[in-house]
Amino acid sequence: MSAPESAPETRVRREHRTPPRKPRPAPTARGFSPLRIVGMAFVWLFTALNVVILYWLVTAAFKTPIEIFNKPFHLPYTWFERGDPFRNLRYAWENAGFGNAFLVTVALVAVSSVVIVAVAAPAAYALTRLGVRGSNPMTNFFAIGMGIPFQTLVIPLFIGMADLGLTNNLFGMFLVYVALSLPFTVFLLTGFFKSLPDELEEAAAIDGASPFRTFFTVMLPLARGGLITALILNAIGLWNETLLAIVFLTDNANFTLARALFTLYGAASYQSEYGGLIAGVAIVVLPMLVMYILLARRIITGLTLGAGK
C-alpha cells in the first residue's frame, strides 16, 4: 500500500471518532487483585472510624452529658433549644484558663519549632555535605537518639532541670523541647540534604562561594520543602505534647493547652461536665487538625522526597 492511497482513509476515520471520557489504564493496572481489595477495605474502614470519632467529638462538644451517653450519634439539640449552643465551649474556655494557655502554647511551639529547625538544618548540612570526618557515625548517633523513648528520660531530666532552677519555667520547657526534638529533625533533614545534587555545590564552589554562603544562598533555598516539613511536624508534635508539660509545669500561668486540658479533665469530671470537657478537647485538637488538612500535601511530599531520586 502506498502513502497517497492511505491518506484519505485516515482523514475520514479521524472525523468520526470521539475521544474516550477516561483514557484506558495500562493493562497492568486493570482488574482487582485480592491484595488490592483487602487494602482498599482496610483503608476505607480506618478512614470511616476516624470520621466517626471526629463526628462524635465535634457533636459531643455541643451536647449535655445526658445526650452524650444516651444518644451518642445524634446531632446535639438541648443547648440549641435553650438558645445557648456554645455554652460548653464557653465553659471550657473560662474554667481551663485556655485564653492564657493559648498564647503560651502558640509562643512556645512557634519559638521551639523555629529554633529546632535553625539548629538542625546546619547540623544536617554539615553531616551530609561537608565531608566532615566521622560524619557517618555521628549521623547514626542522632538516629540512636530517635530510638530512645523520651519517657525514660523524664525523671533524670527533671532532676537536672530542677538543679538548674529551670522547672516550672517556660524557658526550661523550651530547652527540653528543642533537645528532645533534635534527633528526629536532624535525621529528617539529613535525608533531605542528601537528595540534593552535588553539582550545585560544585558550581557554587567554582563561582567562588564560601561553604557558609553556599549553605545559605544555594542549599537552604533548595531544602525549603524539607525545612517546612520539619517545622510543621515539630509544631504538631509540640502542640500535642502533654507528659513533659505535666511534669515540668506546675504554675497555672505557665500552662500549655495540653497541660490546661489535663487540669480541666480533673475539674470537669468532678462536676460531671462531660460536654464542657469534650469542648475543651475540641479546642485543643481542632487547630492542629485544620493545619494538618491545609498542609497535608506539603508534609507528605516532604517526607517522601528524601526517599526517591
Binding site: 545534587p197 550545585l200 560544585e202 544555594v218 533548595l222 525549603r224
Partner: peptide, 12 residues
C-alpha cells in the same frame, strides 16, 4: 569557569 553536564543551574 565550568559548564556541567546537567548544567547545575541554581533552580531558585
Amino acid at each position: 569557569a565550568m559548564v556541567f553536564q546537567n548544567y547545575a543551574l541554581y533552580p531558585h
